[in-house]
Design a protein around this nucleic acid. Structure first.
Lengths: 198, 198
DNA sequence: TTTTAATTTTACACTTAGTGCAATAACATT
DNA sequence: AATGTTATTGCACTAAGTGTAAAATTAAAA
């Protein structure tokens, strides 16, 4: 009979998670060491102790093996974290606070390594930009729960776009300046710029 | 001796342009008819009366054949059009005017067809988002020429981000509502929303 | 425990995008 | 006409990704 609970915890599930982890780790390690293009799926499969075909059982593409590391859970945490904000503020201010709380997740070794790799080809750079649009959607959905006014949908879209766009610029600037000072600082400064420009 | 002028106009150049055009048109036509993934480079080469290998002499990838149609020259026109704006306005207002002037370029049959195709796969959707970031850079460069104040670089970045982001949302909304009313109208409305939200 | 069902892993053959290389054809210049 | 330059092609090759079906592993039922 099928197990309908959320998290089955048998041997099968454990091995599954282990294999998934081995593949993701072997992938990231090789990408960092040899470069993304220079690493073949054959390489990853060998390092993970699995057949090439099995890679596609766990990931739908080579890119996905890299993207699995993106943002250290930033994307997953965005929605719930935003929901914790009080609705007694302007949406943009709430978004700002939320992003500040999550900033540390983007300051990890993995995040930085992955970000470097995401610059190494057109296709990967494009994926990175697309990821921001995903964040925008997560943020928008949380906003729609916090301020459930159907007539403000477009306004919220604009707010989410501005907030995530500001995060993107802050990250860029943080990197350009070699991680100095903290990312949170850059985010704050960029949100301040916003008020003066718009 | 080498021809150093900008636009050589011999037989060679004419044929070159013709071949380029044939490939791009054959590609778009087949993509629309059969779908992007379902169209092979073999198909396009045959339809353009050229060898598969020659495709790579003109385009560096299959995606590029499609992306050549993106925006009907919007990207190329952005910089020069922005430069025509008067510096006696707020940068964001100038950007708004500029985008309104260019809006019609996105309302063409080709733009709409390409946009549809760009939704058909993850990789293509990602390319589309990346294209907006390119626009952002073009706009930023023009702004830096119009208001050459090196201390305002980050401010201008924010402005360019907001302007192009607004364009993106306006385009989305315009499409959702079936092209009604004009794109320019949607752009205006979204820029108005901005003032209220930020 | 044995049997049966579901899931995971693998091998193999195949398609297609993209690259390197070198030969040939077409155009341009002297 | 001879020479150089650019465009076109064929061929062989690498690597990503898919379809299929068999084998191995784990879970559940008897």
């Amino acid at each position: 009979m099928k197990n309908t609970s959320d998290e089955p915890s048998g041997l099968r599930e454990r091995k599954r998670r282990e294999t998934l982890g081995r593949i993701a780790e072997a992938g990231l390690q090789l990408f960092v060491k040899k470069g993304y293009e220079e690493t073949t799926l054959e390489n990853i499969a060998a390092a993970a102790g699995v057949s090439r075909r099995t890679l596609f059982y766990y990931f739908k593409s080579k890119e996905d093996i890299l993207l699995a590391w993106q943002g250290s859970g930033f994307a997953q945490a965005l929605h719930p974290t935003m929901l914790q904000e009080s609705p007694d503020q302007f949406p943009l201010d709430a978004a700002r606070e939320c992003l500040l709380k999550l900033a540390s997740r983007l300051e990890t070794k993995e995040s930085i390594a992955v970000d470097g790799l995401l610059r190494s080809s057109e296709a990967l750079r494009a994926r990175k930009e697309a990821a921001y649009v995903e964040l925008e959607h997560s943020l928008l959905n949380a906003m729609l729960e916090l301020w459930p006014d159907p007539t403000k949908r477009n306004a919220h879209r604009v707010t989410a776009m501005v907030a995530i766009g500001t995060l993107r610029l802050a990250l860029e600037s943080w990197r350009e300046e070699g991680g100095q000072p903290s990312l949170a600082h850059h985010i704050s400064r960029h949100f301040d710029l916003l008020k003066h420009q718009v």
